[in-house]
Design a protein around this nucleic acid. Sequence first.
DNA 1: CAAACCCCGGCTTT
DNA 2: AAAGCCGGGGTTTGTA
Length: 620
Amino acid sequence: MSRTDRKRSADTDHHRAKRAEKDVSEDELDSVSDSPNEEQEANEESNFREEDDKSTENSREAREDQKKLLKERKMKRKSGIEVERIKQLWEKLRVRNPPVPKDVRKKLCDETWKLCEGVIGDLVLKHDASRVVQTLVKFSDRERRDKICKELEPYYYKLATSAYGKYLLIKLLKYGSVKSRALILHSLHGKFRKLLTHREGAYVLDDTFSIYATPEQQQQILREFWGAKYALFEGESDDKRSIEEVCAESPEERRIIARNLGLTIKTSVEKGSTGFQILHAVMQQYVKIFEGDEVRDFIDLLKDQVAEMVHTPQGADVACTILARSNAKERKTILKGLKEFAKPMVKNQYGSMVTQTIFMVIDDTRMVAKTFLPVYTPDFIELLTGKYSRKPFIYLLNGLDRSFFSPRTIKQLNQYVEMSQETSKKPQEKRRIELLDHFIPEFYKAFNKKPYEVLGENMGAQFVLELVMNHDELSNEPSKERAKALQTIIDCVKGNLTKETHLIHSKFTERLLKTLIQGGKWNRKTKQIDSIEGIGLGFEFAKKFADELFDLGEDEDAVKMWLSESGGAFVIVGLVDSFKKHEEDKDAKKFLDQLEQYDEFIKDQPDTNKGARLLEKVMM
DNA sequence: CAAACCCCGGCTTT
DNA sequence: AAAGCCGGGGTTTGTA
């Protein structure tokens, strides 16, 4: 039964219909098919039996069946009354609309608990009774939950692999204390590998691993996949070595571990479990130690489904590793499978790293551009301003600039590049430039489409700055596009500054303008500007800017307007700095002279206008 | 570039 | 289950 089926049957149930619709906290368990009745239960059990011994011969079958049926009836008589009573209580307990008053709920709970205590193990594998226990868990206090957990200790594997029991197990983990979670983990210990390949168990294990297990417990679980020898629980072994350490010590051990991991991965992937986070973690271990043919086989196994793992931390690491280590042909296949998901991938925290790794390690930049550009083009503005998605593009423009990438990230990305040495030949910088060559026209197109909106967004303005400041030697030198963009920027900041909507009021505008006027970013180390020459920035831009906005000092109102905004005044500071270096230019000189007239006006600015304060100093 | 700030997810508490 | 604290990462800011 699929999840949706389950939901549907739940929805049609008459009990359910009365329920408040918005109650989403309802656990999945409760949405298991409703209206349990004896027939269904009997069916369940007979199904179970059939599964257990399929080998029964026809002739003996009848007799065996009868025997079992009899036994079943007996069982029912023995604990049947209790089950009935428990279910009655549960019917009252589970009502949601109106909710059961607390005191009544407690009474019902206590009574249910009295009946359940000691027989929980018998209840949990029946689909209706297991729901009773779930509700009980939900409404119980810490102490009682712990007791339930303890009582179920021998049953957890069965629970995890049971279509009905698995929900109870998840619920126990969810509401359980740290201690009871450890208990459950411990009881499942030794069975993790079996669970991963089990239809129901894989879900339970994945949740357990990715949501409830502590980092130590995660390591513990993963070690079990190395091989039986390493499946020791805490206390049983103090071996805390990482997989690399163990494998570095003994080639023989490495071989065994690699075989175990490889086999597990292969089985799971072929079963269609590529999306499980725990599997990503197992793969992450594997790719740390695989070598030779193992690498080729692994890539071959996954090359069509990389998209399924780029959104988890471990999966992204695996994806980056195989991208780095695959050869040209393999990369082509991988990219083909990724194309369709390129947009969600680059927007994802981890997926954007994968995207950037693709940009950084693949020699065939033409193929990369051809694969991704068409997907990005319709939404470039969104992507350029996205928290994560902008990173790969910033990289293209500016390399691994430390003001955009943390040392940790830089190190990690460089490791992938390192790994790619065997299969990639071009210098990394060459790859970046080639790719940029393809991308830059699209960047400009995106900006031109909605310049005002892009500049209005902080991230957008930052990107535009990187864009126009880029001065790599590209084959189709985009100087025309750049000049046009610079003009567009000036056009966008024309107009009345006192208007709320003027760009000067959005945070980054002032920086953008000042940097362009200075002709480069301020370098704190060298205490000067890293100026970029020959692309129309610096003095050239400053003159143009002053000319278009202030008519080079002849338009008093415009100058005053800029001076009375702190942000605007900082921009003027930039102009003054720039013009002072070029006093031989008559326009520059004229502007400076004109500005002297505003001496008083600047002095009269309140202290909140920090830009004006600074301007006073610079003008002296 | 560094300090301040902010936002979010995870964890603890009631 | 809700509220609040904490730490990490990312962003903004300050104005050389």
